[in-house]
């Protein structure tokens, strides 16, 4: 009898915890494109890395594999003398804010073109993960690069590798001479307003 009562309490308890999760709201204005496939890490320490670059520094060169039909490599130096480069580091695939950042950049190719700029998206995820994740965003016009192995090497060079192996949510703008002209290591929990990038690109004209 005692045991049965105990069991009853336990079932009720589990049920109630279930109800609690059911009523947890979806934060961040997340797009329905990802359905229930977004992992919620909760609120994170806004910044968890030590800066290594300054505005005026020479941008460290890198070559990383890109998610695309051919899985080609992209090097920073291929844009030297030709294009301004905006690098968007995002912390990880399948997380809330990141999932709703690049799809926005995907509808503003014309603004990048007007400013003679290309966009490179980088995360520390491996290619298969990036492939599945970016497929949910529709066809992206810019290369998405995998800084998976050696893990976070480029993120570390740019001073945006966090202590848990993810990267910061950071923007770097590099001019045609290869000089860093803008750095925004943003609060990881928030998306930087797009106009910040546009304002900085204006200055490079």
């Amino acid at each position: 009898m005692k045991n049965r009562i105990k069991r009853m309490w336990c079932v009720m308890l589990i049920g109630m915890i279930g109800v609690m999760f059911l009523f947890m709201p979806d934060a961040y204005g997340l797009s329905d494109a990802y359905k229930d496939n977004i992992f919620s890490p909760g609120m994170l320490k806004p910044r968890d890395s030590v800066p290594k670059l300054k505005v005026g520094s020479r941008a460290p060169d890198f070559t990383l594999p890109a998610v695309s039909g051919e899985n080609e490599n992209v090097s920073l130096k291929q844009y030297r003398g030709k294009k301004n480069v905006v690098i968007s580091f995002v912390p990880a695939a399948w997380t809330p804010v990141c999932s709703d950042q690049w799809p926005g950049y995907n509808i503003v190719k014309d603004i990048f073109d007007q400013h003679d700029a290309v966009l490179l998206g980088i995360t520390v995820d491996n290619l298969p993960t990036l492939f599945s994740w970016t497929n949910q965003m529709g066809k992206l016009w810019f290369p998405v690069l995998s800084d998976f192995w050696p893990h976070g090497k480029v993120s570390a060079k740019y001073g945006v590798l966090r202590s848990d192996g993810t990267s910061e949510r950071a923007l770097f703008i590099i001019d045609k001479k290869g000089i860093v002209r803008y750095i925004d290591v943003h609060d990881i929990n928030k998306r930087p307003p797009f106009e910040n990038i546009v304002k900085e690109l204006e200055k490079l004209k």
């Binding site: 204005g29 797009s31 329905d32 494109a33 799809p103 926005g104 995907n106 509808i107 529709g138």
Partner: peptide, 10 residues
Amino acid sequence: FSMYCPFCQR
């Protein structure tokens, strides 16, 4: 909606 939401774009 959101500018950043692919379904909203579609």
